[in-house]
Design a protein around this nucleic acid. Structure first.
Lengths: 370, 370
DNA sequence: TTGTAAGCGTTATCAT
DNA sequence: ATGATAACGCTTACAA
């Protein structure tokens, strides 16, 4: 902010007090002790400082100190609740450690991401937290991160072997799929987000593992979806539901995607969970009040944020700190009401196809506080 | 990032090329023309620059230029979907104008907010966008903003008379209340967010206006709630629903609050919209798939983001640009299924108290695409 | 057409 | 216990 009452600098203060800028600097940066500044001058400086409302210029300070006490955060979509919550945690922890956060939205676009990284580096952030788009060949700015303090979150990247913190996407999908299989489902499909993206592909892999282990079909025709938007999910769900043998269970590999599936089922007058069961990823406040409440795989967002920041601070402190850690956090399934148990209660007495919705299904079960 | 292959600077490049830093600077900042640099050297510099992957140090540049091409964004809760979406719009527009965004979460706490502002100023952001907590006496850093490029968003502040962009909270609440009154509701209560906060108090005022105009009771006992959390909303809704004369309609003054009301009604086995009607604020993707789909007041988030950024850029360009503008954007009501029409269809033939839920109610009406 | 040098606001080294 | 001063990496008069 160039203009206005010309924000006072150390020089101004020094002049006013008849001391040198060095002295003012030493006091204001808490080095009074170390430099044995007399208590008298120290107080004079402190007083004048607070009186004049001086703020030491971090730009100049950073230039001189060669560190900015700031980190960069590049995520694909700030408005996606998962990333919004993650960003909040990261900012919160960063702040507590004295760091500021420069944020950028890569819009799930590799080029935008590359620009964002370049910009953050040019601003000399001390470190970078990145949820990489990661679908095509990794960009030049991205490769350059190998040598710097940078931690990935939510998504991995093979090429620059960077440390990362993610939740156990694969196991999550496996758990979700098993949950359905155990309840008698055999035709289980996936509504995916951005294919090629780590979290997405891992989840697909988990689903496939569980399906294959039970000898169930898990070909690519059972996976639909082109991105993490509600429209993409709507289209994907429609496609899956229009097939000849309609799936009895769907995995929605992201919270926004679940909304699309819900909407598509409603449009097609397909009742969840009566006609179709659904397990979604990422718990959200609203997941407990949809109709029906959603059975979901919950990611430990607070832990993700905390750990990624701690890892980054560690890398900043010692950039040569061993091989890239990969921290994989466990997820858990929260059972609510979107999965129907297809197993007959009294086997063979009631033909499945004629059975009415079982009122003991957990469709309206009270949910645990989020 | 201090260490690593010592990011090359202009000096390095200049030395390698046998030209002066000045020349490199002039070329790299696109001033080749103005300084009549020969095409030959210009190309040599450009080539060497892209080859070495140089990034000009914005810190030093900003120090010299006395502007950072960065803005600060301080909001009460990044993870609140409304603010997350707003942040996304602001970042997007800022990026397009060449600005970076420094973000901070004030946690709805005046002290944290004050610190965040101080920090951003010390980092010399060119301008500040702020959704002020604004409940208690305004802090010193906040007051100091009067003289700088700063625009408020979503919430107003009287004291430093700053330009602001908000949606028409008051009118929104009025519309919502009238919507209920027109459908025969007479006991209408509010579940509020943080009292003392501009948006909240304006909404209360709008409700009160509409109620008073119809001669309906609108005392403080009909307003409950202590903050924008789901737990607060849960408690508030419970309190309202336990009263002797239970309201037939509730206004939830925020999207998270609506979730609390929904949950509370479910807990108390009160059916929405049969036994209780609900109008909420802030449209969200999930609002169309709750049970029932929510009738809501939608805020023009994209426009809010765009306009606040444009206003800020204008203030940065000419800080003395006239009196503080107050831009109030219109909201609109989206009718879905959470409001019941209490007017008898054939007056006096069917006693209201015995009337079954009217199947023509819009409880399951298809919603417009969000 | 290009180089020299001052200066942006700090901090750290070396004196005193 | 404190002051001068160089340096951080860049931009821009002013010189040449």
């Amino acid at each position: 902010m160039p203009q206005s009452p010309a924000s006072p600098s150390l020089k101004t203060l020094a002049a006013a007090l008849g001391v040198s800028v060095a002295t003012v600097s030493r006091v204001l940066s808490g080095q009074a002790e170390r430099y044995r500044i007399s208590v008298a001058t120290r107080n004079r400086v402190l007083e004048a400082a607070s009186a004049s409302g001086i703020v030491v210029d971090q730009l100049a300070r950073s230039l001189r100190l060669r560190r900015t006490l700031s980190i960069g955060l590049v995520i694909p979509d700030i408005s996606n609740p998962f990333f919004a919550q993650l960003a909040r945690q990261i900012e919160r922890h960063a702040r507590r450690h004295g760091y500021s956060v420069l944020i950028a939205d890569s819009e799930e676009d590799a080029e935008v991401e590359a620009q964002a990284i370049r910009l953050m580096l040019s601003r000399r952030v001390d470190g970078l937290i990145l949820a990489p788009v990661g679908t095509p060949a990794t960009s030049a700015p991205l490769r350059s991160l190998g040598a710097r303090p940078c931690v990935l979150v939510d998504r991995l990247l093979d090429d620059p072997p960077l440390p990362a913190v993610t939740s156990d996407h694969r196991r999550g999908a496996e758990i979700a799929t098993l949950h359905l299989i155990e309840r008698g489902h055999r035709r289980i499909a996936c509504v995916q987000g951005s294919p090629g993206t780590f979290a997405n592909d891992e989840r697909i892999a988990g689903w496939r593992t569980a399906m294959a282990a039970s000898g169930l079909p898990c070909g690519p025709e059972r996976v639909a979806g082109t991105g993490y938007s509600i429209d993409a999910a709507l289209a994907a769900a429609h496609a899956l539901l229009m097939r000849g043998e309609r799936p009895t269970g769907i995995l929605a590999l992201g919270n926004v995607l679940a909304l699309g599936v819900l909407q598509a089922a409603r449009d097609a007058r397909i009742s969840i969970p009566d006609d179709l069961s659904l397990v979604a990823f990422d718990d959200q406040l609203w997941a407990a009040v949809t109709s029906p409440p959603l059975t979901i795989i919950e990611q430990p967002i607070e832990a993700l944020g905390r750990e990624v920041l701690e890892l980054l601070l560690a890398r900043i402190a010692s950039p040569t700190g061993g091989p890239p850690t990969r921290n994989i956090l466990p997820v858990r399934l929260i059972e609510r009401g979107s999965v129907r148990d297809l197993r007959p209660k009294i086997p063979a007495l009631v033909p499945i196809s004629h059975r009415a919705a079982d009122p003991s299904d957990n469709a309206t079960r009270r949910v645990a506080a989020p």
